[in-house]
Design a protein around this nucleic acid. Structure first.
Length: 554
RNA sequence: GCCCCCGUAGCUCAGUGGAUAGAGCAACGGAUUCCUAAUCCGUUGGCCGCAGGUCCGAUUCCUGCCGGGGGCACCA
């Protein structure tokens, strides 16, 4: 619809220029917007204001010339108006809205999809929590956003891979091993002092106990270094398995689990460092090796190999991202917690140094989640091990409510997650508001079937029936869905789908309360059933992109 | 000190340079003989943190300041 209007305006402008009514024949792309108030029409364009100076005439004058040349061959426009400082407002004919419903039925579960991805390979890496402890609420937000972004990109024609990067190498893993080893020693009555920088949670004790049950005291005889390594491997595997379970419970599946350690084992870290050294992007100073990130906009250079010979996390991350692009991804998206923001410039530096464009890499920074219960903060101390895990949250409020709430905010905003609110079955809690639409419509359709109406499909005769103001409003809202999906994909903002769905839900509930779908008039009944089934399809499609279920009953 | 995010109605938040800034909750008043009241309709509620700048036009972009949160290792 927007595109058609834009074409009409551009055509009119060209015609006006040919007739010698305009100074310049250069026209930019025509922007078609949707006014906030209905009195300003269904669509509007600022074209006249944008063009005024180039055309050396007041915007309203220009608008008059343009509207005078409009040819509406497909009979879309009811009327146009020039308003305010020079807006051209379009009032679209009521019947122009109905084809969208036909489209919904034709495209069905593909309605709203597009091909802006053009089959390009794109990777979304998310969660990637260290296998040193269970997932918490913050990871849940990252998981939901990453998963939903992946869904949306896939729906928009990208070839998407979901990846989880496992930090199974380096210091935090040996700390994990040491933590478990010490707890293991405790189980044999040894009096150990448990350091503060070790992992404090009860799950460490559980793993130690498991090792004891499986191996008895045999680890005691091993040299400490070997024993710690053993504990580390067992613990990491155990915790990772738990993470996988939690994610599955949360409806998140990864295509690939990528091990940091494998980057070392395969020599990829070494070869990347060597390569950058040869190109003098990595240099030696004070016994350490530094990456010239400052030449690519970072505030200072960063160490990749410490003077003790060990590589930093940055080193493996460079190798990792080089490897990502090496696997053929044209775009790479990382979903991180906001506390990593300082890390972004150096990673961009390495990606540019490797010869990739800045726009091929994107970091989605997820802001903090505060867990509340009835407005009061819930204690979340990772150090003490006293924290509410993602699993606890899923058990308490359910996957659907949790995911939906995570997507009711822009991810750059801090999020208060209230456990009591998430359970409340009321309008405070938008997930039910949207799901309720799906359940209500399902119920209507079941009732219709009882009355013998089975095969609901689009027919042109419905156009004459669907003419109530609320029905037109719904058709307009349905028309807006593809645009909502596309902008969500382009901006990597899944919350746009959430807001769209709440909007569509409101339009339906409003309609439902005012008009009956099942009536004595078979023509009206069929037309309205078609309309509500169309809504049901779009609600289902949208919820699927968010990873939320669309229930038949509630 | 430097960097990132946020600041919009009493609360929680939408708003990819447009016209009279929106939604939910809260408060108040209504609606169900009938398809799910987990719903709907109405009323009240705003120096869009402050000050400059760019622009025909700024809540939106830029700069500075104020306030809240987070981050600034040869840790990850």
């Amino acid at each position: 619809m927007r595109q058609k209007l834009a074409d009409i305006i551009l055509f009119a402008a060209r015609k006006a220029f040919e007739k010698g009514k305009l100074v310049s024949g250069e026209f930019p792309a025509v922007e078609i917007g949707e006014p906030k108030t209905a009195t300003h029409g269904d669509f509007s364009t600022n074209f006249a204001m944008v063009m005024a100076s180039a055309q050396k005439m007041p915007p309203r004058k220009f608008a008059e010339i343009i509207t005078g040349e409009i040819e509406d061959q497909s009979g879309l426009i009811e009327k146009t108006e020039i308003a305010g400082p020079g807006f051209i407002n379009f009032f679209v004919k009521q019947n122009s809205w109905h084809p969208v419903l036909k489209q919904v039925f034709a495209d069905d579960d593909k309605f709203g999809s597009c091909d802006i991805g053009d089959g390009k390979k794109i990777q979304v890496e998310f969660v990637s929590a260290n296998p040193t402890g269970p997932l918490h609420v913050g990871h849940g937000r990252g998981a939901t956003v990453g998963d939903s972004v992946a869904n949306i990109l896939s729906f928009c024609g990208y070839d998407v891979q979901r990846e989880y990067y496992i930090n199974d190498s380096g210091r935090q893993i040996s700390t994990l091993g040491r933590s478990v080893y010490l707890r293991y020693l405790e189980l044999f009555g040894e009096n150990v002092e448990f350091p503060e920088d070790c992992y404090q949670g009860d799950y460490i004790r559980d793993i130690a106990l498991k090792i004891k049950e499986e191996k008895g005291g045999s680890i005691l005889d091993e040299p400490e270094e070997k024993a710690v390594m053993f504990c580390a491997r067992v613990a990491a595997a155990e915790i990772l398995a738990g993470i996988k379970d939690d994610l599955e419970l949360f409806g998140v599946k990864f295509d690939n689990w990528y091990s940091e350690q494998s980057l070392f084992d395969s020599g990829k870290v070494d070869s990347v460092i060597k390569d950058f050294k040869n190109r003098h992007i990595i240099y030696e100073k004070d016994g350490a090796h530094w990456f010239r990130t400052s030449e690519y906009g970072d505030e200072k250079d960063r160490v990749v190999i410490r003077n003790n010979g060990l590589t930093t996390y940055f080193a493996s991350d460079i190798a990792y991202h080089v490897d990502k692009f090496g696997r053929g991804f044209e775009r790479v998206i990382d979903v991180w917690g906001a506390d990593h923001h300082g890390y972004i410039p150096r990673l961009f530096a390495s990606i540019e140094a490797f010869g990739r464009r800045k726009d091929q890499f994107h970091v989605i920074l997820i802001q903090l989640v505060s867990l509340l219960r009835s407005g009061e903060p819930v204690a979340m101390s990772t150090r003490s091990g006293e924290f509410v895990t993602l699993k606890d949250v899923i058990r308490e409020v359910g996957t659907d409510a949790a995911r939906f709430i995570f997507l009711t905010r822009h991810y750059e905003s801090h999020l208060d997650f209230d456990l009591e609110l998430a359970k409340k079955q009321s309008n405070d809690n938008p997930v039910f508001y949207v799901q309720y639409v799906h359940a209500r419509i399902s119920s209507i359709i079941r009732k219709g079937e009882e009355q013998g109406i089975k095969d609901i499909k689009w027919e042109d005769k419905h156009i004459a029936v669907l003419k109530e103001a609320e029905e037109i409003q719904i058709l307009k809202t349905l028309s807006a869905y593809p645009e909502a999906v596309r902008s969500a994909a382009e901006l990597l903002e899944p919350h746009r789908i959430t807001y769209y769905l709440m909007n569509l839900a409101a339009a339906f509930h409003s309609y439902y309360n005012k008009h009956r779908v099942l009536s004595d008039d078979p023509g009206i009944t069929e037309g309205r059933l078609c309309l509500v089934l169309g809504i049901k399809k779009v609600i289902r499609n949208g919820l699927k992109l968010l990873g939320v279920n669309a229930p038949e009953k509630m």
